[in-house]
Amino acid sequence: MAIGVALGILSLAMTARAETVTVTDIAGREVEVSIPVERIILGEGRQIYLLAALDTEDPFKRVVGWREDLSQADPDSYAAYLAKFPRIADIPTFGGFKDGSFDVEQAVSLKPDVVIMNIESKQATEDARYIEKLAAAGIPLVYVDFREHPFANTEPSMRLFGHLIGKSERAEEFVAWRQAEIKRVTDVIDKANPTRPTVFIDRAGGYSEECCMSFGDDNFGKFVEMAGGTNIAKDIIPATFGSVNPEQIIAADPDQIIVTGGWWEAYVPGGAWVGVAPGRNMEAAREKLAALAKRPAMTGVKAVETGRMHAIWHQFYNSPYQFVGIQQMAKWLHPELFADLDPEATFRELHERFLPVPYRPGYWVSLTDAQ
């Protein structure tokens, strides 16, 4: 009898601790979720960038499945997390929603409390009726966004994650610090109102032979504007992502060029991409950057002639760490205004305050030392 009473009390305590709430996701959908969630499927492995900032002690303790992209798109970060949390090698993985390789039966078998998807998968998710199939098993799906419209959706996404896992206070701490770090750039630009250099963002330059992918007026395109530059593709690309042809780049003759890069050996072995990534060799990355400067699209362009061509970690486009990229771009675009700003120190502080893995440099490089 005593054991039965004890189990009954324990059951009541657990029931009282759990709470069913209605959350509004980034797609504007109202979704019922029992919080705090204890079992999560990450629709993209790189969502660990934000989960780690909230569940810092053990970002993987709730993850029961994730998309297999972190180890391919950012193998150096994956290796750092693997060294600290070896069991992540055993977390079940799956492919993407867009390519139809997501297995609903596998997801259901993992018994998640919630599936978290990036907003760009929404159309494919709806077309395949994944939401209804998961709902039939009592599994809610919510959307977040750090890529399509990061400056509108990063903070709501962080708060949503915080709410789901019972870390709202931690989420607010991160959001407040992020806002303050962005203002270290935007307040200076607003006050000084400097002449804005023109900038071409070469998205994943060298990843393919195509030239050149870039950004419209969001994501890295907006990074440029916030850092005090003018994105030459802002009026050419109507959406967040798109392409600019070589003739448009030559005609615009940008003052500076910023290539986004990463360690993409898993995707394009031996490719011309610039290997900026934590712990990587910056001299090797600079050599790759110099090779990209010789493409026809860069012929006679001012940025190349003056050495004001740079590379920066591509994953700033898909994480809540965008403010570090903004700070570094501000240093490149307006070195006289930001002589005392140290983006390296900012990123190191982010790791020390919010992440369970140590900081390793390697996130950006310039063609020359000229700014």
Rank of each mutant, 00 (worst) to 15 (best):
A239E: 12
C212S: 13
V188A: 05
V188Q: 10
N219G: 07
T240N: 15
F241D: 00
F223W: 14
G206F: 11
T186M: 06
C212H: 09
V244A: 10
K234T: 00
T230D: 15
A227C: 05
K191M: 07
G242R: 04
E225C: 06
A233Q: 06
G229R: 00
F215I: 08
K191Y: 00
G229A: 02
F223R: 01
R196F: 12
N219F: 14
I201W: 09
G205V: 04
I237P: 11
N245A: 08
A204P: 01
D190C: 04
A227Y: 08
F215E: 08
I236H: 05
G216R: 11
E247M: 01
V188K: 12
V188P: 09
V188M: 08
R184V: 03
T195C: 03
P246K: 06
F241G: 03
G242C: 04
N231K: 02
C211P: 08
D202Q: 03
V244Q: 02
A233Y: 09
G205W: 09
S243T: 13
F215A: 10
V185H: 12
D202V: 04
R203C: 10
S214V: 04
E209N: 13
N219Y: 15
P238F: 11
E210K: 14
V199S: 03
P197V: 07
N193L: 05
P194E: 12
V199M: 08
G242D: 14
R184E: 09
E247V: 02
E210G: 10
D202Y: 04
N219V: 10
V199G: 03
A239S: 15
P246N: 06
V185A: 10
N231A: 00
S208Q: 14
F220W: 15
P238E: 09
C212E: 11
P246M: 04
S243D: 11
T230F: 00
V224Q: 11
I201F: 04
G216Q: 02
D235R: 00
E225W: 11
A227T: 01
E210S: 14
N245F: 00
S214R: 07
E225G: 09
A227Q: 08
V224L: 03
F215V: 00
F200P: 05
G221A: 01
Y207R: 05
D217N: 12
A204K: 02
S208L: 11
A192T: 07
V185E: 13
F220V: 05
F241I: 06
N245Y: 03
R184Y: 02
A204C: 01
N193P: 11
N193A: 15
V199W: 04
S214I: 10
S214T: 12
R196N: 15
F200V: 04
G228L: 00
S214D: 12
D202S: 01
V224R: 00
E210P: 05
F223I: 03
C212V: 04
F223P: 13
S214F: 01
C212I: 02
F215M: 07
M213K: 13
N219T: 05
D190E: 15
F215Q: 06
E209D: 14
E225H: 13
S208D: 14
F215G: 02
M213A: 14
R184A: 09
P246I: 03
P194G: 12
F220Q: 12
K222D: 15
Y207I: 07
